[in-house]
Design a protein around this nucleic acid. Structure first.
Lengths: 163, 163
DNA sequence: CCCAAAATCATTCGAAAGGGTGACGACATC
DNA sequence: GATGTCGTCACCCTTTCGAATGATTTTGGG
C-alpha cells in the first residue's frame, strides 16, 4: 500500500540555474573550440576529434555535476508512519514447505542461518558436524537458487519459509 | 601517490574509469554522427550545430548518469506516527539512523548486503572498489556489534534500518 | 579557510563459506 | 529385494569474508 506521503515539495536549490549555466557554458565552449580550430589547423577529420573531446569533457562535467546535484540535497523530509504490527507467530505452512522442495531439516538450518549464526554455531546447536550443516546449506541454496546465504535468507523470507 | 600498484595501472576511483568509458563511448557516438551527417547533408555550419547537439546530449546523459550513480540520496525521513502499515516504501527513519551511528553509505551497503549481494556485486553497483565495500561493511559490523553479515542484516532489520 | 567526518582504496592474512564428490545408515515405498 | 529420500559425515579445493592497518581525498560545517 502506497502511503499517502505528504510529499513536501523538494527544496530544489538552484538546480535549474545550474543546468542553465551548464548549457550556456557548453555553448561557449563549443564556440571557443570552433574558433580555435578555425584559426589553428583545419583538418578534415578534426571534426571527429574535437567532437570527441567535447563529448568526453561533457561526460566528465555531466557526471560530476550529477553527483554534485544529488549530493547537495541529501535528505528530503517526509512525514510518514510505518509501524509494523505484523508480529505473527512463526508458523510454517506445510504447503509452502512442499512447494519449496526443502526438507524440514533444511528449513530449520535456513532459519538458523537467517538468525545470523555461522555454520559452526549451527552445528553446535543441532549437535551435528559442521560438514553436515554445509551439506544441508548447499542443498538448500541449490533448491532456492541462491548463491549466498544472505540471498537464501532473502528468498526464504520471500517464500514465507522463515519469519 | 607512490603506490606501486601491481595489477591495475590506475585503480583510482571507479568513477574515473566510468568517465573514461563514457568518454570513449562519446567518441564512438561522434563518429557515428559524423557518418550520418556525411551521407545526409553537408552544411557548412553544421559543425557548430551538431557539436552543440552532442554537448547537450552528453550534458543530459551526464547528469542523468550522475543522478543514477548516487541515486541513494533520495532517502526519506519520517516521523513516528502510529498507524498500521505493512510493507510501505523503504524509508529510513533519521532518528534511527542517528541512534545507530551508521553513516548513510554504511546503511546503504547494509541494505545491499541484506538483499543478498556479495561484496563484489555491491562494489560494482556502487561504482567503488571491493576494498571500499569491505571497509564500510567492517565498520558497520563493528557499530552493530555483528560478527557476520547475516547477523548484521538481522540487527539492521531489528533496528529498522533496512526494510 | 580549516578541520573533522565521511568516503575512498590498498595490502595482508586467517577464517568462513561454498562447490564437488563419495559414502553410509535409517526408513519408507513399490 | 530394489528403489528413493533423508540425514549424516568426510575430504579437497576455491572463493569470499572479515579484521587490522594505514593512507588519501571529498565534503560539510564553523
Amino acid at each position: 500500500m502506497i502511503q499517502p506521503t505528504k510529499s513536501v515539495p523538494r527544496p530544489r536549490r538552484g538546480v535549474l540555474r545550474d543546468i542553465l549555466i551548464y548549457g550556456l557554458s557548453g555553448g561557449v565552449l563549443i564556440t571557443v573550440l570552433k574558433l580555435i580550430e578555425f584559426r589553428f589547423v583545419v583538418v578534415e577529420h578534426s571534426v571527429e576529434i574535437y567532437g570527441a573531446l567535447i563529448a568526453a569533457l561533457f561526460a566528465g562535467i555531466g557526471i560530476w555535476l550529477g553527483l554534485r546535484l544529488t549530493r547537495k540535497h541529501p535528505t528530503v523530509i517526509l512525514k510518514e508512519v510505518p509501524v509494523l504490527a505484523v508480529a505473527g507467530p512463526f508458523v510454517i505452512d506445510e504447503t509452502r514447505m512442499k512447494e519449496s522442495g526443502l526438507t524440514p531439516r533444511e528449513i530449520e538450518i535456513l532459519g538458523l542461518i537467517a538468525s545470523g549464526l555461522s555454520n559452526r554455531e549451527i552445528a553446535a546447536r543441532l549437535f551435528v558436524s559442521e560438514n553436515t550443516v554445509k551439506t544441508h546449506s548447499s542443498r538448500l541454496f541449490e533448491k532456492l537458487g541462491a548463491k549466498r546465504r544472505t540471498q537464501a535468507v532473502q528468498f526464504g523470507k520471500a517464500a514465507g519459509l522463515i519469519p
